[in-house]
Amino acid sequence: MAAGGDHGSPDSYRSPLASRYASPEMCFVFSDRYKFRTWRQLWLWLAEAEQTLGLPITDEQIQEMKSNLENIDFKMAAEEEKRLRHDVMAHVHTFGHCCPKAAGIIHLGATSCYVGDNTDLIILRNALDLLLPKLARVISRLADFAKERASLPTLGFTHFQPAQLTTVGKRCCLWIQDLCMDLQNLKRVRDDLRFRGVKGTTGTQASFLQLFEGDDHKVEQLDKMVTEKAGFKRAFIITGQTYTRKVDIEVLSVLASLGASVHKICTDIRLLANLKEMEEPFEKQQIGSSAMPYKRNPMRSERCCSLARHLMTLVMDPLQTASVQWFERTLDDSANRRICLAEAFLTADTILNTLQNISEGLVVYPKVIERRIRQELPFMATENIIMAMVKAGGSRQDCHEKIRVLSQQAASVVKQEGGDNDLIERIQVDAYFSPIHSQLDHLLDPSSFTGRASQQVQRFLEEEVYPLLKPYESVMKVKAELCL
């Protein structure tokens, strides 16, 4: 049975990233139509530049190519590739079939990587351009969430054990800070992308030097003109047959890092959902379990974690691919890159769409948070109580021993009897502590235990987050809708 299948058929496997999760716009960027249309555009740009620099290419040939950029006979191309065992030459023939007058000058002087690699770089750039505003929107939604809850005390956790208090907004800023680093890295790697350009079979530009009869300047002009037509500021000066596969490492490393950030955020949300302090959106008709109707599973956060793990592992592909590119190139890269580049971007696209949807509907339960604080705060307040007693004339050592005994009794009630923490009640009825009984409410005010959390939130948002989001103001209103 021949390899390949009808990918629109229910009898043929289709990647869930495309069929179930990723956005239509990201799927289109990695589609065959987008790819092969870009090949034709690159052939047109090459012909236009070659004509401008004096090669015998007519206006009629150029116009014929322009008129057929979208006229792609995919069936013919597939048949040609089956016959020739070469995808680029299959599309040269297919393009030439609908451009008979231009057929002889299509791909003039070029090698397969002229269309293959340059198209990949265009796709990487455009895919990054799709991700950047999506990530900015996630940051914006979380920034709104953090600002609104900047002063809401909550129990902090280290080692997932109760620690000092923080605020809900401050905790959210930990998430935002990681995503801001990801946004900066995505922008950097996007701006650092260079075009492969017009380089020939081993990167020496020998074929173009021959076409222009040894004119170095025209060869350099050709490279520059096509690079500018493709919208790049610069091209690699040095290439082998391909652009260095280190570029793929750079791009997928940034995406993998984004995956790590999203995994951490969504894990926190899942843990908070278990504590009943916070939940992701839950639709009115949504079913959490087929057997347990009360369940409210954090399905979206779980999906993000599941896909983020996949995204983090994909960076190993370009690392290994770059390491086995012998001399000017081997074909070890080809099949692998067809999979890992598309999957990385479709996965990143999915987790950003999902995280935006989550961040637009996060639900906080202040009463649950308050109750958990009441359970733990008495123990945390013991040092403040000791200091207040010393100020009232008591002995630190005597007070410490009193607190120690009462704390152990209260802990026994919590752990052995399943009761509430009654340390404060014990202190309130103990005559030894009568000098500070009137101060206990103040000493137990949760806001006095959150330090500068709310001020940190305000400063972080104003100095770091809002300036970073400013270039994306025009796209901030787009909502994230999930079908599944």
Score class of each variant (00 low, 15 high):
L406P: 00
A163L: 04
P24L: 12
T202D: 08
P10E: 14
L55G: 05
A110L: 04
C180P: 05
I123F: 11
N185L: 09
M65V: 13
F327Q: 09
I106A: 09
G4D: 14
D144P: 10
R374S: 14
Y432I: 13
L142D: 15
K246D: 15
T94W: 12
C305W: 07
N68R: 08
H7K: 12
T52D: 07
D420Y: 14
P10V: 13
S31W: 00
Y365D: 05
F208T: 03
S67R: 13
D6K: 14
T321K: 01
S359L: 09
Q241K: 05
E277N: 03
L44T: 00
E417Q: 10
E417D: 09
M387C: 00
D73N: 05
H91S: 06
A2F: 09
E280W: 10
K75P: 04
I351W: 07
V254S: 09
K264F: 13
S151L: 01
W45G: 10
L108T: 11
S448R: 08
S289L: 00
S9Y: 10
N336E: 06
D445E: 00
S395H: 12
P435L: 09
G200W: 07
E464D: 01
T267N: 02
A143Q: 05
N297M: 15
L142T: 04
K187E: 05
Q416R: 12
L44M: 11
C27P: 02
R83Y: 08
C180I: 15
H93C: 11
L258P: 12
R404I: 06
F95L: 09
S306E: 14
K246Q: 11
G116T: 10
L108A: 06
E343H: 11
K367M: 10
S407K: 02
E302F: 08
V254L: 15
G418A: 11
L130F: 13
I424T: 11
G259H: 00
G4Q: 05
A49R: 02
L346S: 12
E464A: 07
K224F: 07
G116P: 05
E462S: 15
T166A: 09
E277G: 02
T382Q: 13
D6M: 12
T244H: 00
F28N: 05
S454T: 06
K295V: 09
A388R: 05
P366Q: 12
L53V: 07
L69R: 02
V315Q: 06
M26I: 11
P298L: 06
S151I: 08
